[in-house]
């Protein structure tokens, strides 16, 4: 095979690999073509060819980088979540809610942390499942790099005497191992966490005015630190709900259940006031014209002024 044919063949291979999604292989072939062209004098329009190949290399590299950055922790549709739960569902006739525990653990393992935590929190009500549910809740938070939050949660359980001493000991030992594995320097008993979790509200339902909008700083994610203003779609006493379009992915990724919002501005038709809130839920709307969008709920825990 002469050099010209070899270059043509390599280029064709690179194009086919790219077409079949084999980007690393395509990149390697484009680079081979580039090397061959570069080392050969007398090729017609050599500079033009090299330019074209350089562009191919750049585009393919960018695609590869983008794919490498994809994480399997994205939210999946409800039917897929049901399937994930089904895979791990077990039914222990001795323990009511056991099938839900299996499902919640499966969701957690597939990286669907918000949904898993929501279900696991419900399972804290069941005596026989409380211990496993608690351990899995801590696992979920640590996996998301919210170790400090996990510590505050553990301390809350400790303070509220939610678990008998033997179970608490089991949780403590598990939690210590979990934090060691995550490489987090920790003192789970002695340090008071900066964050508060699921705090009781200081506010009486009757005291709260009708709120039409809120403004707060996004606590995490791609838009961390940015101020957003959201309209209230529903209010029940100290609980306010907002709609977020599914298209606002960055916004959705920047706020999660459990987040504490320190400086919220509340707009009501008669006054503006300030306070603190706790994100109590974020869930996809499953029916109606807003199907697929998200409902965000904040529990107002404090009014400052």
């Amino acid at each position: 095979m002469n050099l010209g044919d070899k270059i043509k063949n390599y280029f064709k291979e690179a194009e086919l690999y790219s077409e079949h999604g084999l980007l690393a292989e395509a990149l390697e072939r484009y680079r081979s073509v580039e090397g061959l062209v570069r080392s050969t004098r007398g090729i017609r329009n050599r500079d033009g060819i090299l330019k074209k190949i350089a562009k191919k290399i750049e585009t393919t590299s960018q695609k590869l980088q983008k794919l490498d950055g994809v994480q399997a922790t994205q939210k999946v549709p409800e039917d897929a979540q049901s399937l994930m739960k089904e895979m791990y569902t077990f039914d222990d006739p001795e323990a009511k809610g056991s099938s839900t525990l299996g499902g919640a653990v499966a969701l957690a393992k597939f990286g669907q942390y918000d949904e898993a935590i929501e279900e696991l929190n419900r399972l804290l009500e069941y005596d026989k499942l409380r211990l496993e549910a608690a351990k899995n809740i801590l696992w979920c938070w640590v996996q998301q790099s919210y170790s400090e939050y996990a510590v505050s949660l553990y301390q809350k359980w400790l303070k509220n005497k939610l678990f008998p001493p033997d179970e608490l000991e089991s949780i403590k030992s598990y939690f210590n191992e979990l934090m060691d594995e995550a490489g987090v320097d920790h003192e789970i008993d002695e340090v008071e966490s900066q964050q508060t979790i699921e705090p009781d509200s200081e506010v009486d339902d009757d005291e709260i005015l009708d709120i039409s909008a809120v403004k707060f700083v996004l606590p995490r994610g791609p838009r961390e630190g940015e101020k957003v203003e959201l309209e209230i779609s529903f209010q029940s006493g100290k609980y306010i709900q907002m709609m977020i379009s599914r298209k606002e992915k960055e916004l959705l990724d920047s706020i999660n259940p459990g987040d504490l919002l320190k400086d919220i501005v509340f707009y009501s038709p008669v006054a503006i006031f300030y306070g603190e809130g706790f994100v109590s839920s974020k869930s996809a709307i499953s029916a109606g014209p807003k199907k697929g969008d998200f409902s965000l709920e904040i529990k107002i825990i404090k009014i400052v002024s």
Binding site: G21, K63, K66, L67, V70, A72, Q74, V76, A80, M84, F110
Partner: peptide, 8 residues
């Protein structure tokens, strides 16, 4: 999936 790759 991103780029036709199965994630789950």
């Amino acid at each position: 999936t991103e780029g036709d790759r199965t994630l789950f």
